[in-house]
Design a binder for these strands. Structure first.
Lengths: 235, 235
DNA sequence: CGTTATTTGTCCGTATGTATT
DNA sequence: AAATACATACGGACAAATAAC
């Protein structure tokens, strides 16, 4: 008989502040009452107030400047979706074979859609940027970390070139998982060389203006990783 | 001349705890040292320790019980992607016409991919569950909140039926935005009736075993919303 | 089963530094 | 230049819940 989850004062503070902002129609740039005011108003200690404010700062709704006040920030889709922690928690994750497959399949779906959209309004700068990342990958075949970094830049560029503002956000959300996955993938024989080859094909196609072909090579790149994962998974 | 970002003691605490867990190979369920032990061990005050722990609790790596200890929790992909605060922040969001379009386009990409996958291994239970949601929608045309709730259940069911464990997570991530968007969309003339019609068509097709047709109707449903948004956007 | 010790949760006072007003 | 307000940090006191005996 204790289904009631303990209510923390800091949560009440966070709710109160949200309600205060809504009721008083505060806009981004406005500031909320001082710590002491909130503390006396709600009749609780300043520690709890600070913790409640900290939660809202972590969520992106508030921002405080030392010596200044606590200001209301604009909440946009990116700040809503993006995890603020930046803690390296992905190292605690262990993906099953099935999860690895689902991840690469989902990645393929999203990324191919982005590439098709990007192909419709491709600029020379995007092509150049992609080629640059590709060159860097070729020069860093011996440094897996750097290789992955430029690989990530390559794929991020495609997501940005789609013109859809949500796709890069999803890519960033999943990118730590991609990195972890590719890191393990890179141990396989010739995995990096194969990846590099596909990237080069995409670049070459774009430079010839053959956008459809570029989409195909990207599809093959991700399908290739999927197939190799599936092969191991089946064994 | 102050590019150096200030180092917070609480960040050091968080890093130290992460390292402690990795070095001592702590597993979910194990507990970390007490506040006092960490405090004396690192030679810093209790406040900083508590803040560092609070950050890791917010991220989902730790959990604490009053009177008990601070325990290590399991980090899986879902908790990594969705540590999010559970605060109702979406009510602060105002989407531009362009953002609404990008959102529905992205949703279409993901959801149609899920539907195609789901169609490959569809069960009678899924079909029944979808029909049930559809019936509930029809009975709640006058209650927008309930209508949206069952609409969400319908689409969630499709994501789950895909068998891909990542797609429902992405759907949940974006679902507050979908809800907000559909809420505004519901004001349009006949918007809810149109949506209901498409859902019925999907169900009917599935009940006839015509999975390809079901995929088509889902595509048309999302494309219809996109087209109507695009129409307003152009005006 | 009850008592006690331990640990976290909450509250509060204090102090120093920093940036704004 | 001074006052204000927040950031950071320390630590004591008590309450509440758990764990150990």
């Amino acid at each position: 008989m204790k289904a009631i989850s303990k209510i923390h004062l800091s949560d009440l503070v966070a709710d109160s502040i949200i309600n205060f902002i809504l009721e008083n129609n505060l806009k981004p740039g406005d500031c909320i009452p001082t710590e002491k005011e909130i503390s006396t108003l709600l009749g609780i200690g300043k520690t709890s107030v600070r913790e409640g404010i900290a939660a809202l700062k972590a969520a992106g709704l508030l921002e405080s400047r030392q010596g200044g006040r606590v200001y209301v920030m604009e909440i946009n889709i990116e700040s809503l979706l993006r995890p603020k922690s930046s803690l390296p928690l992905f190292q605690f994750i262990e993906m099953s074979g099935r999860e690895e497959l689902d991840l690469i399949v989902t990645r393929g779906t999203i990324e191919v859609a982005a590439m098709k959209e990007a192909a419709k309004h491709l600029t020379g700068e995007t092509t150049k940027s992609l080629r640059s990342s590709c060159t860097q990958m070729a020069q860093n075949l011996s440094d897996v970390n750097l290789f992955i970094q430029y690989d990530k830049a390559f794929h991020k560029e495609i997501m940005l070139a789609s013109g859809n503002f949500i796709l890069p956000i999803l890519f960033e959300l999943l990118s730590d998982l991609y990195t972890k996955q590719f890191w393990e993938f890179s141990r396989r024989s010739q995995a990096m060389n194969r990846a590099l080859d596909f990237h080069s094909k995409v670049c070459a196609a774009l430079e010839r203006g053959a956008t459809n072909e570029a989409v195909e090579w990207l599809e093959r790149h991700l399908a290739d990783m999927e197939a190799r994962l599936r092969g191991e998974h089946m064994q």
